[in-house]
Design a protein around this nucleic acid. Structure first.
Length: 459
DNA sequence: GAAAAGTTCGG
DNA sequence: CGAACTTTT
């Protein structure tokens, strides 16, 4: 056993393949301590939603297995990360701490403080880019500002140096304290974290829909590239088809890296319309994270501050509840909200439709919707979720308010032409049992545009 | 199929 | 400047 082990701190990168921090620890040569910290205590770190906890439980179980197979036990610790990592360092006498970068505001503060503190104590502390294709500070406009429009942003990314090729997963690791970790530091039992719902167990639909973990992420990518990429450019918009990649939760938890997605897609289908379009969707994820990097308050504050003048009417709680539970009387909205409640996922276009309906037709503040998605989506992350909501609300980057009052009836006709999506989730429609919409679409659209006039006046 | 219409960014 | 923009009427 080496005297000075290296700690690899796993965060939103629950994988062993293409893991630069783990890779660097292997190269360093000392025995490895792998740790995951459940941090619900650090200032400003957002507590996980219910669906996210469900995913995290299974993803950690999968990662622990993959590490154990390679000779390392995953140590689970709970508490404020600064304190937990520092005490682990002392406990094992670590000589190095490696991690992959996080880009949220609160997380960056935690990491920066730890990095300087541990470095002052003489440890080797290194962080790596692993969850984004391009570091946010490297993609800038010609006038050296961050981009606020997607298309030129993505063009600049495509013109930059190509993202690195993925690193191989280490086949064998030198675990500190032996392969079973008995000689190493103690950790929590995953079950004791109670991440899974019990009373009641509402996760049945999630189990039917998803398979968390790194091996499943790669199977999903392979199946998507083989079956769905060719017709992706148009098929992705169809609510009644399963032609999207459904990789978002795997990317959210870092079970697969965007580098792996990028290179696999290019190797398989470089130059095709499907590949171009799919990688642009990965680009939207990238853009959201870059925006969050430059504007850490994305989840709470309007990115366009003039939207602070938007006159959200007084909220009737029953209206919000009707939206949450899929009882608005607007079929495609109700179908999508029930899909979310049941499966923990929602089609990309359905997200735009339901978000437009909440903010433009119900005139409810985007933050209420964002919070609901945060609690119910398995893929909700710190960037894409608030970014998407602000984009739809009109307060965000690349948002063109006038254009983004979706008409849910038109959207249904275009993207669920045979009614298969709506019929699956709102079966009572077939019985001729269609309730009246809780709002008039034309009137509320006009009201939203009138409210938007206040925003313009506030500029 | 055109117009509604506001903003960004590269040329 | 003018092209671009996950749309609606």
């Amino acid at each position: 056993m080496g005297a000075t082990p290296s700690i690899v701190w796993f965060r939103d990168d629950l994988r062993v393949g293409d893991h630069p921090a783990l890779h660097a620890a292997v190269e360093r040569g000392d025995p490895i301590v792998a740790v995951y910290v459940l941090d619900e205590d650090s200032n400003g770190v957002r507590p996980l939603g219910g669906a996210a906890k469900w995913w995290l439980h299974h993803s950690l179980a999968s990662l622990a297995g993959d590490l154990r197979d390679r000779g390392v036990r995953l140590v689970l610790r709970r508490g404020p990360a600064r304190r937990v990592i520092r005490s682990l360092v002392d406990e094992v006498g670590a000589g190095a701490v490696f991690w992959n970068r996080r880009y949220g505001g609160a997380e960056r503060e935690v990491d920066a403080e730890l990095k300087s503190g541990l470095s002052d104590d003489g440890l080797e502390v290194r962080s790596f880019g692993a969850s984004l294709l391009f570091e946010p500070w490297t993609i800038r406009t010609g006038s050296d500002t961050p981009f606020s429009v997607f298309t030129p942003f993505w063009k600049a990314c495509l013109a930059a140096d190509e993202p690195r090729h993925p690193l191989p997963a280490p086949s064998e690791l030198d675990g500190f304290g032996g392969a079973d970790g008995r000689g190493g530091p103690a950790g929590d039992d995953l079950d004791d974290w109670e991440l899974l719902p019990t009373h009641p167990d509402w996760a049945g639909g999630l189990r039917e829909t998803w398979e968390p973990g790194e091996p499943a992420a790669h199977r999903r990518l392979r199946a998507f590239l083989a079956d769905d990429l060719a017709d992706y450019a148009t098929g992705r918009d169809r609510l009644d088809r399963e032609q999207t990649s459904r990789l978002s939760p795997h990317l959210r938890w870092g079970e697969i890296s965007p580098h792996q997605v990028w290179h696999s897609t290019r190797e398989r289908a470089a130059g095709t319309e499907g590949a171009r379009k799919f990688l642009a969707e990965v680009g939207w994820r990238e853009f959201a994270w870059h925006v969050l990097f430059h504007f850490p308050e994305l989840a709470t504050k309007n990115w366009r501050s003039e939207f602070d003048a938007f006159p959200w009417p007084r909220l009737h709680p029953s209206t919000l509840t009707a939206w949450e539970r899929g009882r608005t009387g607007v079929p495609v909205v109700d179908a999508a909200m029930r899909e979310l409640w049941h499966t923990g996922g929602m089609h990309n276009r359905a997200r735009m439709i339901t978000a437009s309906f909440l903010t433009k037709n119900l005139l409810i503040d985007w933050r209420r919707g964002e919070q609901w998605f945060w609690d119910t989506l398995v893929d909700a992350d710190h960037a894409s979720n608030p970014f998407g909501w602000q984009w739809v609300a009109g307060s965000g980057a690349d948002a063109a308010p006038y254009f983004r009052v979706f008409n849910p009836e038109l959207q249904r006709e275009k993207f669920d032409p045979d009614g298969r999506y709506v019929g699956r989730w709102v079966p009572e429609l077939d019985d001729g049992d269609s309730p009246e919409p809780i709002v008039d679409l034309r009137e509320t659209r006009a009201a939203a545009l009138a409210a938007y006039e206040h925003v313009k006046a506030a500029k």
